[in-house]
């Protein structure tokens, strides 16, 4: 079969993806440390500030995370065709069909699947949900970072409750990202094994490989 090289993901989209991924790794590692600072020390008069440092990197990564979420939201509106929100939502008959056929494909009920340049609808919806969780995570995060700010209090109090409740919810939602990362990586490898479109490398170089002269391929 002949394949042709198709440009799918813009450079901004790929940067946004890696900023988001890196931020999540840093946030989870430092977040676990902040919850339980295991490097307890009896040493005084030292120049080490382990908890302050971890909090610092947590906050920095939080800003990277926020930036990535905002960029993705903008790309949902002004990105290329694969990046737009309507490509991901089951709002057209084709997308609704794709949503159910993806379930069948992932459930080994069928071997055929639609060649799509961008996300399948199931993945698109999952990513949208992930950004909603990310929004909750960053609002609760800023609520705790700026506890004396009336603005963040007016968001944080009705959404999450007191600082302690916000902290608990922030901690619980963190697990969503760990589970998401696991499923995300598994399905990437699974798809890469099942169809040779170069899905994994596409997030590095932006290109996917699609069968040539295939009527079902969306160009």
């Amino acid at each position: 079969m002949n394949y042709e090289k198709k440009y799918v993901w813009s450079i901004l989209f790929r940067l946004c993806h890696w900023a988001f991924a890196l931020a999540i790794v840093v946030l989870v590692v430092t977040g676990f440390y902040i919850n339980d600072p295991w490097t307890n020390t009896w040493l005084e008069n030292s120049r080490t500030f382990p908890v302050a440092d971890m909090r610092y990197y947590h906050f920095l990564a939080g800003f990277v995370f926020t930036a990535a979420v905002l960029v993705r939201l903008i790309l949902y509106l002004i990105g290329n065709r694969q990046e737009r929100i309507f490509n991901a939502l089951p709002v057209t008959p084709g997308n609704v069909r794709n949503f159910f056929s993806t379930f069948a494909y992932y459930g080994y009920a069928t071997d055929s699947h639609e060649e799509r340049l961008g996300h399948n609808t199931l993945a698109g919806l999952t990513y949208l949900f992930t950004y909603a969780v990310a929004a909750a995570q960053l609002v609760s995060g800023f609520y705790m970072l700026y506890p004396e700010s009336v603005t963040w209090q007016s968001w944080g109090l009705p959404l999450f409750g007191t600082q302690q409740q916000a902290r608990f919810i922030h901690h619980l939602l963190m697990w969503y990202f760990l589970i998401f990362a696991f499923v995300h990586l598994y399905l990437l490898v699974w798809n890469d094994v099942r169809s040779p479109e170069g899905m994994i490398s596409s997030i590095f170089n932006g290109y996917k490989f699609k069968p040539k002269h295939d009527g079902s391929a969306k160009a």
């Binding site: 600072p37 490097t39 307890n40 020390t41 009896w42 005084e44 030292s46 302050a52």
Partner: peptide, 14 residues
């Protein structure tokens, strides 16, 4: 707190 010095349990060295 900032320097990572904590009481691990009541009555310990920390």
């Amino acid at each position: 707190f900032d320097e990572g010095r904590f009481a691990e349990r009541f009555g310990d060295t920390g």
